[in-house]
């Protein structure tokens, strides 16, 4: 339900008040999306991400996604996985049970450090995607040499 907009005698214009109320509605909406719950389960694919020292590793189970139907982008500290699982086509099929979904997906994750986008490598094997993202030079810990005086 929309909140009723009350004209406030002191507000500069009725539009300021409208805007404030709209912002509040949108804030509530955003909070609702961020909360873990049934909504957040619509995220696909599930990911395992780990830190292997010089490299960040991202793994996803995406059975039935052909190599040509998958796009991977790495920019700065952001990784995007975009793909599509095709539905079985051809002959007419009568489904008795349908648990596997089909369709398109996009998932964007923010990595804890910047990565060297030129050296990212990805392998898709038996329905498991493994992406290795070398950390950017600037993100690697550096040992500071002490000068003797």
């Amino acid at each position: 339900m929309w909140p009723t907009i009350r004209m406030n005698r002191w507000s500069a214009s009725p539009f300021d008040e409208l805007r404030r109320q709209m912002d509040r509605v949108l804030d509530d909406f955003n909070v609702g999306l961020a909360r873990p719950g049934p909504l957040s389960r619509a995220v696909y694919p599930a990911l395992n991400v780990w830190d292997a020292g010089d490299t960040l590793c991202v793994e996803a189970e995406i059975p039935g996604v052909a190599k040509g139907d998958l796009e991977i982008y790495a920019i700065g500290n952001e990784l995007t996985l975009k793909g599509r699982r095709a539905e079985l086509s051809g002959e007419k099929l009568t489904y008795h049970r349908q648990e596997r979904g089909a369709g398109e997906f996009t998932r964007v994750i923010t990595l804890p450090t910047e990565v060297d986008a030129d050296r990212v490598d990805a392998v898709l094997r038996d329905g498991v995607l493994s992406v290795r993202l070398p950390k950017a030079e600037s993100a690697k810990p550096r040992k500071i040499a002490l000068k003797a005086v």
Partner: peptide
């Protein structure tokens, strides 16, 4: 947006 492709691993 992700479509209804999610399959929770049981």
């Amino acid at each position: 947006m992700a479509t209804e492709t999610n399959i929770q691993k049981r």
